[in-house]
Computed example of a mutant assay.
Amino acid sequence: MNRRRRLVQGVLFVAFVLVPLVEIYVLVQVGQVIGAGWTILLLVLDALLGTWLIKHEGGRAWRALREAIDGGRMPATEIADGALILLGGTLLLAPGFVTDAFGILLILPFTRPLFRRLLAAAVARRLTIGSIDVRPPSGPQGGAGGPGRQGPGPGPGSGPVVRGEVIDDE
C-alpha cells in the first residue's frame, strides 16, 4: 500500500472513529460535572457564538477578498482566510466541544495567521515544480513528438499555423 493511501486511511480513521469517541467522552465528562441541562445549554450557546463568528469573520474575509481583487493584487491571504473560515465553520457544525474549539480557533482573527502559515506550508509541500526542456530536439528521431521531444503542447510542425491579430476591446 502506498504512502498516500495510508495517510488518507489514517485521516479518515481519525475523522470518523477517534474524533466522535473523543467528543462523546468530553460530553459525558462535562455532563457529569455540570449536569445534562447545562451541557445542552452550553452546546446551544456555543453554536450561536459560532454562527455569529462565522457570519462576522466570513463577511470580513469576503470584503478583504473583494478589495484585493479590485486593487489588482493576488488575494492569496484572503483566499487562505476564506478556506480556514469555511473549515472552521464546518467543524462548528459537528456537535461537541472539541471540534467547536478547533473551529473557533480557525475562525478567530488573532489565531488564524498561525493556521494560515500551517496551510501555506502544507500547500507548498504538495506543489511540485517541474522544469520543461525548451531546447530543440536533437538526434535522428528528434522530430515533433519523437523521443527527443519534451514539454507539453503540440510540437513544431504538428498542424497548420494560423496568423492573426489580438484585439483588446478595452
Rank of each mutant, 00 (worst) to 15 (best):
R66W: 07
H56M: 10
K55S: 07
I167D: 04
I107L: 07
P156R: 07
R112A: 03
P136C: 13
M1Q: 05
G153H: 04
L127F: 07
F97T: 09
P147T: 15
G130L: 11
M74K: 00
L18G: 10
A120V: 11
H56W: 15
G96L: 10
L12M: 10
P160S: 09
Y25S: 01
R126L: 12
P95D: 09
L7E: 12
D169L: 15
Q29S: 14
A61L: 05
G153M: 02
L7N: 08
V11A: 08
G37L: 12
V14H: 02
L49F: 15
G159E: 08
L53F: 12
S138C: 01
R117M: 01
G151C: 13
D168H: 13
P136E: 15
P20Q: 12
G139L: 02
P154W: 11
R126C: 03
R149P: 01
A80R: 07
G58Q: 07
R73M: 00
A122M: 01
F110R: 13
I167Q: 07
F115Y: 10
I34P: 00
F102T: 08
L105G: 06
G35Q: 04
A144V: 05
V44C: 03
D46Y: 12
S158H: 05
G145R: 11
L91D: 05
G143K: 04
P137F: 01
G72P: 03
F115E: 00
D169R: 15
I132G: 00
A64K: 02
I107Q: 05
L12A: 13
G139E: 06
G50M: 01
G146C: 07
A36T: 14
G151W: 02
L49E: 04
V22P: 00
V22Q: 04
W62N: 01
L106M: 11
K55M: 08
A120T: 13
L92D: 00
V28K: 04
S131L: 13
P156N: 07
Q150Y: 10
G143V: 06
L118Y: 04
A120M: 13
G35A: 03
V30Y: 04
I167V: 14
E165Q: 09
S131V: 14
T111H: 03
G35L: 05
G157A: 13
T99E: 00
L105N: 08
F97N: 04
I24C: 03
A121W: 12
G37S: 08
I24E: 04
P160Y: 05
Q150L: 10
I24Q: 03
W38S: 05
I24G: 02
P109Y: 02
L91E: 06
D100V: 07
R63D: 03
G10N: 07
L92K: 00
S138K: 04
G31A: 12
R63W: 01
N2G: 09
